[in-house]
């Protein structure tokens, strides 16, 4: 697999604030690469630096094997960008907007016409071609924003939180669309602070916080990286809390709680964890109902790595 983006030791300051601190990143062809981080962690700054929109203080950025600069028009031609903020002309219709942004890349008229049509179909805005942005709902506007960024069929697409403030149905549409773009051959860099989205579509994920890249890998790799095993919950109607101390002494047990008639046990990595717990209960004639065992989520991973919840109260 060819390397599409290579970022080495990137340092970016906004005056006093260090927005990116020795940041490293490598994205391979064909990936949907997720940049996951809380608000203000530096996701947008990373993208802006890679795109040449921002000057950075130190480091090296290569795109398609060439050093990136604002004047590398040949590289830029193959890049599509969907920014965090909707950027369209209020004065132009849906069609005219897509045509304009596509026209910045594609000069040939008939080819452009075809591309614009395809982009409109792609985001399902066929019924709204003649609408001006003010007449579109939030979800539709986001879709227009996406169409404007990808109409020229770029090989590399940056999407900076394209689903913020979008209703669930539109969000699923957008996520499906991203998968489709990827299966059509585009490499995608996707930023979000929604864990589920990233888990759902990304092939590899970087977890960042405070301008640092804390971990990179597939979601399985990330989960393996931390020392968490499964989370077990067991329905017990009548539980004697004196056993809690004993359960804590079982191998690999990390935490034990009894709430709402449910016993929650978190494990670090290990084998036979569940079996040992169930044996323990049977030996003491504790009757139990349903048993659930879940692998750790990326939320757990994030919590473990950064020491804080991903979303601030959302």
């Amino acid at each position: 697999m060819e390397t599409v983006i290579k970022v080495e030791n990137l340092l970016k300051r906004y005056n006093e604030l260090i927005a990116l601190d020795n940041f490293n990143l490598e994205v391979k062809e064909g990936e949907i690469f997720g940049l996951l981080g809380p608000n203000g962690s530096g996701k947008s700054t990373t993208i802006s630096c890679i795109l040449g929109l921002l000057k950075y203080d130190k480091g090296n950025i290569e795109v398609f094997g060439k050093k990136m600069s604002p004047y590398e028009y040949d590289i830029k031609r193959q890049i599509g960008v969907v920014m965090q903020n909707v950027a369209v002309f209020d004065e132009l219709t849906v069609y005219e907007n897509i045509d304009y942004f596509c026209g910045l890349y594609i000069k040939d008229r008939s080819l452009r016409k075809q591309y614009v049509k395809e982009a409109i179909d792609f985001v399902n805005l066929g019924d709204f071609e003649k609408f001006v942005p003010q007449k579109l709902s939030g979800g539709l506007l986001r879709r227009l924003n996406i169409a404007c960024g990808i109409a020229h069929k770029p090989k590399l697409i940056f999407m900076d939180e394209p689903t913020v403030a979008v209703d669930p149905q539109s969000r699923n549409n957008i996520l499906e669309g991203i998968k489709k773009l990827n299966s059509d051959g585009a490499t995608i860099v996707y930023t979000s602070h929604y864990m589920e989205e990233v888990e759902k579509i990304c092939t590899r994920i970087a977890i960042m916080d405070k301008g640092k890249n804390l971990a990179i890998g597939t979601k399985e790799e990330l989960k393996n990286m931390i020392n968490l095993g499964e989370n077990v919950s067991i329905e017990i109607l009548d539980f004697d809390e004196k056993y809690i101390q004993d359960i804590k002494k079982l191998p690999n047990v990390y935490s034990v709680e009894y709430v709402n008639k449910n016993l929650h046990v978190k494990y670090t990595k290990g084998q036979r964890n569940l079996i040992e717990l169930l044996d323990f209960l049977r030996e003491r004639n504790v009757e139990f109902g349903h048993v659930y065992s879940e692998l750790p989520t990326l939320d757990d991973v994030f919590l473990e790595i950064t020491g804080k919840e991903l979303r601030d109260g959302e």
Partner: peptide, 9 residues
């Protein structure tokens, strides 16, 4: 921003 990202000189 969008225009600056694009390949137009």
């Amino acid at each position: 921003k969008r225009i600056t990202c694009s390949s137009i000189s």
